[in-house]
Simulated assay, not measured.
Amino acid sequence: MKRIPMTLLVVAGMATASCAADAPLQAVDHVDLPRYMGTWYVIGNIPNFAERGKVATADEYRLKPDGTIDNLYHYRKGFDKPEKIWHGKAWLPDPKDTARWKVQLLWPFRSDYTILALDPDYRVTMVGLPSRKLLWIMSKDRTLDDASYQRLLEQARAQGFPVEQMRKVPQRPEDAGKPGFQ
């Protein structure tokens, strides 16, 4: 008899996760774009082909007078290597929805960018794609305490992201090679 409740619990959990993955992403209510601008260090991400193996990565956003956003991606291929920068752009498909952007970092690739979490002080953010294949946790500082990181992972899990694929990005030489880091 104990197998039936456990089986029902597993099936219900799978159904809930499936629904979360199919539902539209829940973005933050509003982003004050001038406050959001600046350099955001990538604390953790679901690695993709363009970011895999890079260290000291950061996104830098600059709001332009026409409302578009310069998106500069800073990275190194090793801490002993020079910094490189990719120049991209971002824009708001709906200027009233400041939490949903279009981003083009590498031509011709464009993607949706949804701000899923943002602390009141504009120091920590989490961004994901509607497909739930990519996710970033970023901070205005090169480090983020583990409790905050874990809370964001739980928020992402609740929205259907595969958080088990998340890896931390080495921001300091002493981070390289540690468990959980790329």
Rank of each mutant, 00 (worst) to 15 (best):
A21T: 11
V11A: 15
V28D: 05
Y149S: 02
L33N: 04
E164F: 12
T114K: 03
V11N: 06
Q165I: 08
E154P: 07
D145M: 02
V28T: 03
V55Y: 03
L135T: 06
V124Q: 04
Y61V: 06
Y41I: 05
M14Q: 04
A158K: 12
T68A: 12
A56S: 13
A117S: 09
P173K: 01
P170Y: 07
K133F: 08
A12L: 15
D145T: 01
V124P: 05
L118W: 03
R132L: 07
W86V: 13
V169W: 06
R132W: 02
D141N: 15
K54E: 09
D66A: 07
K96S: 05
D97P: 00
G177D: 01
D70V: 02
L72D: 13
Y149W: 09
G78W: 00
I4C: 02
Q26C: 05
G38K: 09
E174P: 00
Y73F: 15
D22L: 15
I43P: 07
D66Y: 09
R100K: 12
E174I: 04
L92N: 07
P93D: 07
D22H: 06
F109G: 02
G128D: 01
A27K: 06
I137R: 00
D121F: 13
V42L: 08
G160Q: 04
M1R: 04
Q171M: 00
G13T: 05
K77P: 00
L33F: 01
I69L: 11
R35E: 11
R52Y: 14
K89L: 08
P65T: 03
R132A: 12
P173Q: 01
W101S: 10
D22R: 11
H30N: 08
A158V: 11
W101K: 10
E154I: 08
W107T: 02
A117T: 02
I43A: 11
N71D: 15
F49K: 11
V55C: 10
I115H: 12
Y73R: 05
W101L: 14
L106W: 15
G88K: 09
N71S: 06
G67S: 13
Y113F: 05
K168S: 05
P179G: 00
P82L: 14
Q26A: 14
T16P: 00
G67F: 08
H74E: 13
V42I: 13
T39G: 08
E174M: 01
Q182A: 00
Y122M: 02
D22F: 06
A158T: 12
T57P: 14
T7C: 04
L25M: 13
L63H: 09
W86A: 15
G44T: 09
A58M: 08
K178M: 06
K89E: 13
N45D: 14
C19T: 09
E154D: 13
D59K: 11
Q182E: 11
A99T: 12
P179S: 01
I115F: 03
E154N: 15
G53P: 09
G160A: 10
D70T: 12
T68D: 11
A20G: 01
A99V: 03
G128F: 11
K64P: 02
D112R: 10
R172L: 10
M14I: 07
R151V: 04
L25T: 01
A50E: 09
A21Q: 14
P5W: 01
E60C: 07
T114P: 08
I85H: 13
P82W: 06
Y61E: 05
R132D: 14
M138P: 00
G177Y: 00
P93N: 12
V127M: 03
V10G: 02
R157N: 07
